[in-house]
Amino acid sequence: MSLLSLKNMKTSIGQYHVLHDVSFDVPEGGVFCLLGRNGAGKSTTLRSIMGLWSPSPGSVTFRGEDLTGLHTADISRRGIAFVPEDMGIFGGLTVEENMILATANGTFDRTRLKWIYGLFPAIEKFWDKPAGALSGGQKQMLSVARAIIEPRQLILIDEPTKGLAPSIVDNMAEAFREISDKTTILLVEQNFEFARSLGRDMAVIEDGRVAHTGSMADFVADKDLQDRLLSLSA
């Protein structure tokens, strides 16, 4: 059974119909990549899953439970975390305070925190510093670290490499590989090289509709399909 299943999901924002009958299944384990050109509807899909936009009609099913209509907080309590494109950190709070806000009861599992330090050494280094003083890459690390401070079954991550230096992107890829051994990742990403290095399965959204689903290996091997759906040669 799929971990997450979207069936005929439609989402409208005001008068604009953004998603049209979006359907795909995310299997448990590894990284599932959601690809597409700018404005295709990728971020709206993640926000709809989290209940930040209300899809209607259609359904979002997680471990067999229909999440449609639930509040975002209730969806999060099911074991789903969301890392938005804007990272959503609190710049006036310290790194520690940002992390505390992501915990269930204000305390840390020290073993898990040590694991996060290993993934993102900057979290430990700047623990008592204001999050607003971090670099862009460090803020992205903090945003991901908050999402995994509690055990999760699924993490939705939106454009994590946007604007980051290549060395930071490489570090992020290594961290995601390790995280995906414990937690399924649904990744929205414009950097195709980053996505192809991590993804096991994938879907492409085009103009608010799913244009292709399949394995990442098959998609990487089909240059014509990549060109048609993502215009990679351009």
Rank of each mutant, 00 (worst) to 15 (best):
A165N: 03
K125G: 08
L93V: 01
S48G: 09
I155R: 04
L142G: 07
S12T: 10
F219R: 07
M50N: 00
F126P: 15
A104Y: 15
L164P: 00
E193Q: 14
N8A: 12
M1T: 09
M216R: 07
T45V: 03
F176T: 04
I75D: 01
L67N: 09
Q153F: 12
G30T: 02
V210D: 06
L187F: 02
K162R: 14
S56G: 12
I80R: 11
F82P: 05
T94E: 01
K162I: 14
L230I: 01
S56R: 12
K125I: 10
T107I: 09
V95W: 07
L156S: 04
D170E: 06
G106L: 06
L46S: 03
G29I: 00
R78M: 01
G208S: 07
G199Q: 05
G79S: 01
I185N: 06
D21I: 01
P84T: 03
P27G: 11
V210R: 09
G36R: 13
G88S: 01
T61Q: 10
E96K: 14
E97N: 07
D170T: 10
T111R: 15
S56N: 14
N8D: 13
W115Q: 09
S197T: 02
A234H: 12
E174I: 13
T11N: 08
L232N: 12
W53T: 11
D227T: 05
F32T: 03
F120V: 03
L198E: 00
P55M: 05
G14V: 01
T11L: 09
Q190V: 03
R200S: 12
F32E: 00
P166Y: 00
E178V: 13
N98V: 08
D207F: 12
F176H: 02
G88A: 09
G92M: 14
S23K: 10
E206I: 10
V220L: 08
K129C: 12
T107Y: 06
I49H: 12
R77M: 12
L52W: 13
A104G: 12
R209H: 07
S76N: 11
E193C: 14
P57M: 01
L19P: 08
M9P: 04
E174Q: 14
F192L: 00
L67Q: 10
F192C: 02
T94M: 05
V95I: 01
I205P: 02
G30F: 11
P151T: 05
R146M: 04
M87F: 13
W115Y: 08
N8H: 11
L156P: 03
L34F: 11
V60A: 07
D227Q: 10
Q15A: 13
A165V: 12
I89V: 03
M216S: 06
C33H: 12
N191C: 00
I13F: 12
I100S: 08
I123H: 01
S56A: 15
S23T: 04
L225Q: 14
I123P: 07
S231E: 13
G36H: 11
I123A: 02
S5Q: 02
R146G: 02
H17I: 03
K129R: 14
